[in-house]
């Protein structure tokens, strides 16, 4: 009863919703974004004509309004990427290793506990950390002062480097569960016979981790690092709601800057150009990571 043509038709039927969604929600917006970035497009007055690469030139010309906003936001975003990626990967791996060694009955309980924070909205997370890090009588300050660790309260949200520390802690608490789950799945895939063989060879826990676990999960780890870098580049909710981009615009990120260019200054064309430039920078960083990893593999 098998009919080739019928199968093909069904295949098209099944695939076409995805292709249409892909075109509608990814390809078309991307090309539209590029097209808008080449125009003097104002959110209020609409398209005021094709201007070629002028928006990009304005953003990249030192001293211009958009250049100062973009460069400041880029610098802030890179600071966050640098300080956030190591803890988001290392702590997630640490938690995954601890969970991996728990009794089977306890594993799902702790997996759920650590993952549940990921399901909370950024608004709720920010509200919690605003309360915790409140400078005046906040929970963290009260705790540290009561314990004698601090002589006087710290301005967690309005002084650097504490503002970054607050945003970082909130981000780690909020998103760590996702990376941890990926690591747990990777650890589950490691062949137990490798550990058994290393036990026979007398390897200790550290050596097993270095010579068995890490090489076995390195592809997943590489994927997690790339995804974490991308997520950190997209920092928005936490810095918007916890520090409001301050103190003195030091936690204003690229996404916040783009949002302001479009909805504050009404410059949709400039905002689109900033977004495209941000995408290119993220692409370069990810490609560099991939290249370094690939080259290392080749050398090995």
């Amino acid at each position: 009863m098998h009919k080739g043509t019928s199968t093909k038709t069904w295949a098209i039927l099944m695939v076409s919703p995805f292709i249409l969604c892909f075109i509608l929600f990814w390809l078309a917006p991307m090309f539209l974004g590029v097209w808008v970035s080449l125009h003097n497009w104002n959110l209020s007055s609409g398209n005021n004509g094709f201007i070629g690469l002028q928006n990009y030139i304005d953003i990249l010309t030192p001293g211009s309004l958009y250049n100062e906003a973009f460069m400041l936001a880029l610098k802030n975003t890179l600071v966050f990427v640098v300080i956030s990626v190591p803890p988001l990967v290392i702590i997630a791996l640490g938690l995954a290793l601890i969970l991996d060694h728990l009794p089977a009955k306890l594993k799902p309980v702790f997996r759920t506990i650590y993952f549940v924070s990921y399901s909370i909205s950024v608004t709720a997370v920010s509200a919690i950390f605003l309360w915790l890090f409140n400078e005046n009588g906040g929970f963290i300050n009260n705790l540290l002062v009561s314990m004698g660790i601090l002589g006087k309260p710290i301005n967690w949200l309005s002084e650097q480097p504490y503002a970054w520390v607050s945003v970082l802690i909130a981000t780690v608490w909020w998103t760590i569960g996702f990376n941890m789950m990926l690591f747990i799945n990777a650890l589950d895939e490691v062949d137990p016979s490798l550990y058994e063989a290393s036990d026979l060879d007398g390897a200790n826990g550290f050596k097993k981790f270095i010579y068995i676990t890490l090489p076995q999960i390195k592809h997943v780890a590489f994927f997690i690092i790339i995804m974490t870098v991308i997520a950190s580049f997209n920092l928005y909710g936490q810095s918007r709601l916890i520090t409001a981009g301050g103190p003195e615009q030091s936690t204003t990120t690229l996404t916040m800057s783009i949002q302001n260019a479009v909805f504050g200054m009404n410059q949709l064309g400039v905002g689109s150009s900033m977004a495209i430039l941000m995408g290119i920078i993220m692409l370069l960083v990810t490609a560099a990571q991939y290249f370094m990893s690939y080259r290392k593999k080749e050398v090995n």
Binding site: K8, T9, I12, L13, S16, P17, L20, C21, L24
Partner: peptide, 12 residues
Amino acid sequence: KWLVLLIASVLV
């Protein structure tokens, strides 16, 4: 095939 594609488009 085009009919199928059209129906899918309409659905989406």
